[in-house]
């Protein structure tokens, strides 16, 4: 093979389907081989963990599922690890969703994390799923003044007044902490702007990697911590596993770190090849 100008020219204008093929292989291979990675927690992730770790038993924490099936690989491990951590600390967990698609994801956490790992925790006493309500940012606004006006029933239609853990919840200010797992708007940013800032309520959460840069300016004054993308989720999982080893069986983000790592390396390789080709064609 001759590495002349034509070769480099062709390489720099390579059909993108070849790139797609390489990415598909690099993502699939580590998944098939089942390679596991570890993650070293970043300060922003550690802050979320430590703040929850310091919460006294019985603290009331609202967790909002603001995402849909498309970002489940990134967001679901965050929500699962947070709920596991909160229930391990005997906090009261209030799940809800600003996105219609979030309702199914909170159900997933209950079925796969809460019920198998905490069989003694009682629905309505230790945790509750309020479900989805329409309104987006408007819903957050309304919850700020009255939770029970918007949520008269839980997700399955039971009267909200019948649950002991709802007796002292009137407004968002009654929560000790708000967590939002989001992949867009309304999401964590809206929870900071319309609930955390207004009511001086500690807010944190997790977002997709793409959304993360938009949230950084709020740290640490308006948002006490953040899990950014799959990496953030993996870091939180490693912290939870370190403290509660039985969470190891539920790890999901850590398993997905291998495909992400290899895919990142593949992208770097493509960029390097592209630049070599660019310089070779320019030189001639």
């Amino acid at each position: 093979m001759k590495f002349d100008t034509t070769f480099w020219m062709k390489l720099s204008q390579i059909d993108r389907r070849w790139i797609f093929l390489v990415i598909a292989i690099t993502v699939a291979l580590p998944m098939v081989l089942g390679i596991d990675f570890t993650a070293v927690p970043a300060p922003m992730v550690e802050k979320v963990f430590q703040t929850i770790q310091r919460l006294p038993a019985g603290s009331k924490v609202l967790i909002s599922y603001d995402y849909g099936p498309s970002t489940v690989p990134e967001n679901q491990p965050m929500a699962d690890a947070l709920v596991f951590h909160l229930l391990s600390k005997d906090c009261k967990v209030y799940m809800m969703a600003v996105w219609a698609t979030g309702e199914r994801q909170s159900q997933y956490t209950i079925d796969h994390i809460v019920k198998p790992s905490f069989p003694n925790k009682e629905y309505g006493v230790d945790y509750i799923d309020l479900g989805f309500k329409a309104g987006g940012t408007g819903l957050i606004n309304m919850l700020f003044t009255s939770v029970k006006r918007m949520y008269t029933t839980d997700r399955t239609g039971n009267d909200i007044q019948s649950f002991p853990m709802m007796s002292d919840i009137e407004t968002l200010k009654n929560f000790d902490m708000i967590l939002s797992i989001s992949s867009g708007a309304p999401g964590l940013k809206e929870w900071i702007q319309f609930a955390g800032d207004r009511g001086n309520i500690p807010v944190a959460g997790g977002v997709t990697a793409v959304q993360a840069t938009e949230l950084f300016p709020y740290y640490p004054r308006q948002m006490f911590g953040l899990m950014a993308g799959l990496q953030g989720a993996a870091e939180y999982e490693s912290l939870v596993i370190h403290m509660y080893p039985k969470f190891f069986q539920h790890r999901s983000a850590l398993r997905k770190m291998a495909p992400q790592t290899v895919a990142h390396l593949a992208i770097i390789a493509f960029v390097i090849i592209g630049n070599i080709a660019y310089f070779m064609t320019r030189k001639k």
Partner: peptide, 13 residues
Amino acid sequence: ADVTPNVKSFLDT
């Protein structure tokens, strides 16, 4: 209302 012993204030809404 009933609150946990670690709580030192309550908002009556």
